[in-house]
Each structure stands twice: as C-alpha cells, then as structure tokens.
Amino acid sequence: METKFIELSKQRRTIYNLGRNVKLSTGELTKLIQESIKQAPTSFNNQTQRAVILFGDAHEKLWDIVIDRLKQEVPDEAAFAKTTAKVNAFKAAFGTILFYTETKTVKQFEENFPLYAANFQDWSEQSQGGAQQAVWTSLAENGIGANLQHYNPLIDDEVRAAFNIPGSWKLRAEMDFGSIESPADAKDYMADDDRFLVFK
C-alpha cells in the first residue's frame, strides 16, 4: 500500500512561527499555488475557487489592513497590543494567499441545475476546503509552513478596495506562508472507534 500522500498530509501542519527564508522564487511559488488550486476538485467542474497571491509590500499591506480594521473592534489598548502582536506574526511570513469563491458561478449553477440548487453553496465551500488543503500540502512538501486565518468578512471591503477585487468574489480565508522558524506542537487525535464506522 502506498502512503506518500498520508506522509505529506502529516507534514501539513498549522505553523505560526513563519519567516522569509524561502528558497523557492515568487514565480515558482505562484506556479505551485496556481497548479494546486487548478487540480483541486469542484462540483460539476464549475471551478468556483479564485485566489489572490500576495508577496512583498502587497503581503504586508494586507496585514496592515487587518490591524487597522481590528483596532476599531478591540475594546482596549492592552487587548489591541496582543492582537497586533498576533497579526504581526502573520505579517512576518513570506506571502499570503487570499482564497475567494466566485459567487456568480455559484448562482449560475443554481439556476441551471434547479434540482441541486440548494447544494451549490455547500459544494463551493467543500471546493474551498479541497483547494486550501491542496495548496497547504503542496507548500509543506516544499518545506514551507502555513496557517489559515479567517478575518473575513471583517476586512472584505478594505481588501476589495486595496487590491481591486471583483465584486462577485467572496473572501473565504487568508493563508500566510513562509519558512518554518519553529515546528508545530504535537497533535492529539481522537480514538478511531469514536470517529469511524466500518462495515464488512
């Protein structure tokens, strides 16, 4: 039995301590991310996933937007200082991927396939999960760490304006990535008997 995929999946961990000591070029990373998303499955092959890949100043600009937006929400200076430190850790990474869903495509398939209309929103979210896992695992295979954040919808309008994002794209997640400066902690798993049913 081949287990290469399982071993790669074990490498795909949430890494918070990220840096910029990345050996791949931005061009190589862009190609890796794009190809990973292209090969991820979608319902009816409707390809609802979209991505914005940020490097350099654009990457830092995103996390500045997050900090500025959170300042409006965090109740006091002490709490905001902790929030800023957390976001600055994401900013210290090499780059960020913004994962979007093209809502026009979802709506089009709802209209074209009314029997399944109630499912296309859920299926688009499943496609997002597949794309995000594919990218994350591909990065891990290349020794690059990542973590997944969800500051949407809080930052949606500011990010849309900053990067000229189409109005029909809905932000679903933000993945910062970079060199692994310290590994993830050990991971616990629930008992298989509580998680799986097998019938023969």
Rank of each mutant, 00 (worst) to 15 (best):
I155E: 02
E174M: 09
Q39H: 13
I37A: 10
A89Q: 12
N152V: 03
I15L: 01
N88V: 11
A117E: 06
K38A: 14
H59F: 12
Q47W: 12
D194A: 15
G19C: 09
R13M: 02
L8W: 04
Y116R: 07
K200M: 00
T30L: 15
L98S: 11
T83G: 03
Q149I: 02
E110F: 08
M1A: 07
Q34R: 11
R160F: 15
Q133R: 06
A162I: 13
A85C: 04
F90D: 13
N119I: 00
K71I: 05
A81P: 01
G143Y: 06
K187H: 01
I15P: 01
A134C: 06
Y151I: 02
L29I: 08
V66H: 04
E73C: 05
T42N: 13
E110T: 10
A85K: 05
E102H: 14
V52P: 15
D194M: 15
D185N: 02
K71Y: 05
R69F: 05
A186N: 00
E141W: 06
A92S: 10
E60R: 11
T137I: 02
K61S: 10
R69T: 08
V159S: 09
I67S: 08
Q34A: 14
P166Q: 14
S179D: 03
F177L: 04
S9F: 01
A51Y: 09
A78Y: 05
Q132L: 08
R172I: 11
R13H: 00
P183T: 00
V106W: 07
A184G: 00
Y151T: 01
A89S: 10
N164V: 14
F163K: 14
T14D: 03
L24V: 06
Q121W: 08
V66M: 05
G130L: 14
E181T: 04
E174G: 06
F109A: 15
E158P: 08
D76K: 02
D57H: 14
A93V: 10
A134G: 04
T84L: 04
P41L: 08
K82G: 10
G130C: 10
N142K: 10
N45E: 10
I144D: 00
Y189T: 05
D194T: 15
